[in-house]
Design a protein around this nucleic acid. Structure first.
Length: 127
DNA sequence: TCCTTGACTCAGA
DNA sequence: CTCTGAGCCAAGG
């Protein structure tokens, strides 16, 4: 299950809470903004951080706009509990459209936090 | 203690 | 385009 450190999880929740309606972020995109835990190998971190982001969201606080986070292919990931249709419905309510292969337009809808905000919160400004 | 299970991603085949 | 495997501070059965 690759349970991430609490500090990592907290930063995932902080970033997700900032995503505006109608915009998206990917698991890997979010993880790339979070500094690696001290003592952890950079390469190892890069290989596991996206999964950590997914695991953190698997048990995220209900008030977070978790539905605005999708995978690197622009698709809604399978999850335990209710199916992906709930996430899809929420995104469509915000005006996002899925193509005939269940994909979203990442090129034009992915959102990036402001650099000043990243710096103020101890996050990385370059990935 | 061993084994399985993952809200991921990328490079290869 | 689809399918694998490898990457790796974990828990729960």
């Amino acid at each position: 299950m690759d349970a991430p450190p609490n500090e990592f999880q907290a930063q995932v929740y902080l970033i997700v809470s900032m995503i505006p309606p109608g915009r998206l972020m990917t698991y890997g995109g979010i993880a790339a903004l979070i500094p690696p835990p001290p003592e952890m190998d950079i390469q190892a971190y890069a290989a596991i951080r996206a999964r950590w982001a997914g695991y953190a969201l698997a048990r995220c606080p209900g008030e977070l706009p978790w539905h605005r986070v999708v995978n690197a292919q622009g698709r809604v990931s399978k999850r335990p509990g209710h199916g992906p249709h709930v996430q899809r419905a929420r995104l469509e309510e915000e005006g996002l459209q899925f193509d005939d292969r269940e994909r979203l337009d990442l090129a034009n809808r992915v959102w990036e936090p402001e650099e000043t905000w990243l710096q103020a919160n101890g996050l990385l400004t370059q990935s």
